Amino acid sequence: MLATPGLLPPAAQDAQWAYETKQDGQRVLVYLPGDGSVLLRARSGEDITGAYPELLPLGAELGTTPAILDGEVLALDEQGRADFQLLQGRMGLAQSPALAVRRAAEAPVHLVLFDLPHLGQPLLTLPYVRRRAALERLGLDGPYWSTPAALTGHGAQALRATREHGLEGLVCKRLDSGYEPGVRSRAWIKIRNLRSEDVLVGGWVPGKGRLTGLPGAVLVGQRAGDRLAYVGNVGTGWSEAERAELAVLLRAAGTDTCPFDPVPSVAGARWVVPRLVGEVRYSSRTRAGMLRQPSWLRLRPDLAPEESAADLPEDTPQESPDR
């Protein structure tokens, strides 16, 4: 069952919804046949059990009772927050068991559980609130898995807390909703916390097809001391008119010299003098400081390139994006 992007339920309906932290990991269904074994399947249906050997002991937790659990595999950083880039070092190892075991010892994952579609029998038609209660009664809290609490009501406070703690977002689940396999349902609403910052445009990549002659993406950076650090490319967020306007400004600012230090490896890049300030929205940053899922909001002609609004945040790693 998948969530639909949206907004908080109306305040008058708040008590009819539960709220869970949106996790930045790999969604899994966990099959426990009751014989001590465990099978993990990704959203694609792929068997990924071998990638996470530290989760194998979960197979014995419920004895002979067969069950299917819904959850998310996370890799946690030093602050205990989910870090998808860390997780990428563990994903894709299902066919490399020896390497998976070594990686598990170095950087173990953690499985958070949030639904129970099957326990001895299908529970798909039971309302969420009863499935959730049944899941919590199982007491599945171990060294590499847990069942975080869900909050009923108080959605605005829950969303604010995720923002204050730098978490990815919130999932709102209607208390009376059944479990709909494979459906992106309005009974589950996901709210992603997005941030916005000012950036300097230092280059662009020509578009293709209907975008021929226009920028397909702009290459953006932020000040890191006396240099311009590349933080990613932005290829969405413009109307046709805005993209055409930007094309004129970029051509007028063209230069043969890359303004970024170090020079990013971007095929077909065209460089510009970094005098255009723009505002972008993004979900988070990678460990190398790159913007994740950026989209263009607007040009900022009210800001000069030298203004501190275009500075790289002090706690962002300042390393080459190619490392």
Rank of each mutant, 00 (worst) to 15 (best):
A150W: 04
R102L: 14
L29F: 10
A15G: 10
G209P: 00
Q222R: 15
G289N: 05
P148Y: 15
A75S: 14
D24S: 08
T255M: 07
G216C: 05
V199I: 14
Q23S: 06
P274W: 04
V272N: 11
A156C: 01
P143Q: 14
K208H: 14
M91Y: 00
D315Y: 06
R102I: 11
S177P: 01
V273M: 12
P108K: 08
R285D: 03
E180I: 12
E164Q: 15
A94Y: 00
R243Q: 11
L119N: 06
T286V: 09
S239Y: 10
P10V: 08
E164K: 12
I48Y: 02
L194K: 15
L214A: 04
L124T: 15
I68D: 03
C172L: 06
V205H: 05
E78V: 04
V234N: 05
G232P: 06
S196T: 14
D322K: 03
G235H: 06
G202W: 07
R174I: 09
R103F: 04
G178W: 07
Y31K: 01
T64S: 11
E307Y: 02
P97C: 15
T286Q: 04
Q16Y: 02
S283N: 01
A105I: 07
L93T: 01
A269Q: 05
A247I: 13
E164V: 00
Q222Y: 10
R131K: 10
R41N: 10
G71H: 12
T64P: 00
L303I: 09
T212V: 13
W238T: 01
P206M: 08
R292P: 01
Q23K: 08
R292A: 07
V112Q: 08
L138G: 05
E279I: 03
A253Q: 03
A100F: 04
A133T: 07
A82Q: 05
R287K: 09
V201Y: 12
R227L: 08
W271S: 05
D47F: 05
V205A: 02
G25E: 04
A310P: 00
G207P: 01
R27K: 12
G209Y: 09
